[in-house]
């Protein structure tokens, strides 16, 4: 019944879990990564008739496999080849977060950037030009969000469905 599988990647403390919970609601399954002691969260949601399975990757700062979390995230993206990777970034610490995003880009996986915590960034006087960012990245969708407040969720779902339909 699953039409596509997508992955949620991001640094620790980017509100990735909030995004995951907001997308899946109660349709979650928590287990461990095979042979690892790291928690694996999977969930489902349906949008516009598409059944989407979503895998929450462990929080990591890079894909360089320095830590177990980084290794799991990298192996999933490279070996399991999800239809789409949603890179959740903290808008208030964008520069640090984009390092991981850049490495995901390099794997060649299709990607959407979820620019989370824009409310925090705004309050610190940080303004992000999402269309400009998208253009610099060759048209990768950049969705502004504040998942804590439920802002930008529909836009994200819309972008996920649009991106997976294109494939």
């Amino acid at each position: 019944m699953t039409d596509v599988t997508i992955a949620l990647a991001g640094n620790p403390n980017t509100g990735k879990s909030t995004v995951f919970n907001a997308l899946t609601g109660s349709r979650q399954h928590v287990g461990n990564w095979p042979g690892k002691t790291v928690e694996k969260k999977e969930g489902f949601f349906e949008y516009k008739g598409l059944n989407i399975q979503i895998v929450d990757l462990p929080g990591a700062y890079s894909l360089s496999a320095y830590s177990l979390e980084e290794q799991i995230a990298r192996d999933f993206i490279v070996k399991e080849k999800p239809a789409l990777v949603v890179s959740v970034t903290d808008a208030a610490n964008l520069e640090r977060n984009l390092y991981l995003t850049t490495q995901i880009l390099e794997t060649g996986a299709p990607m959407i950037i979820a620019l989370n915590m824009t409310d925090v960034a705004n309050s610190r006087g940080v303004k992000i030009d999402a269309p400009q960012m998208s253009r610099s990245l060759g048209g990768i969708p950049v969705i502004k969000m504040a998942a804590r407040r439920g802002q930008g969720l529909d836009e994200l779902k819309e972008a996920i469905v649009a991106a997976t339909r294109e494939l």
Partner: peptide, 17 residues
């Protein structure tokens, strides 16, 4: 690459940022 990307897309209001 990241720094260039951020310089291009992010503006900080000097007052608060």
């Amino acid at each position: 690459f990241v720094n260039t990307l951020v310089q291009g897309a992010v503006t900080r209001s000097t007052a608060a940022g």
